[in-house]
């Protein structure tokens, strides 16, 4: 079983590296997940991660790319809610990678 050790706590991951328990998420866990992806989280990243968690709280599912872009545009405006910005932040796979870093399940409607 994959796992991370964050601040002495063992955090279980699924085979694709997503958190098994949503409640395990915290800022240090997000940093550790990002490190595994060779990514350093900037304010821009955090803004999207917090928004994704709000999306999940509202709809109880992880968005595919299109709805993610739409939702970000709705909440933060079109400068942030466009595929170029999100692709640059999340290595070309915003729905999958941002969901992983935000501690959400893997998006199911996203090939």
């Amino acid at each position: 079983m994959k796992h991370l050790i964050v601040a002495g706590r063992r955090i279980e991951l699924d085979k694709d590296g997503y958190l098994l328990a949503l409640a395990d998420w915290s800022a240090p866990v997000a940093e550790a997940l990002a490190q595994q992806e060779q990514l350093t989280l900037s304010d821009e990243h955090w803004q999207i991660l917090h928004l994704l968690r709000a999306f999940y709280a509202e709809f109880q599912l992880s968005p595919a790319n299109r709805p993610l872009i739409k939702y970000v545009a709705l909440k933060l405006g079109p400068e942030k809610g466009n595929s170029l910005h999100l692709n640059l932040l999340f290595k070309g796979a915003p729905a999958k990678l941002a969901a992983k870093l935000a501690g959400l399940p893997k998006p199911t409607n996203c090939l």
């Binding site: 709809f59 109880q60 299109r66 709805p67």
Partner: peptide, 15 residues
């Protein structure tokens, strides 16, 4: 069970 009603709210965002 999972919250189907919450999921349904996402339909407009999915187009």
């Amino acid at each position: 069970q999972k919250d189907l009603a919450a999921n349904l709210q996402a339909l407009p965002l999915f187009g």
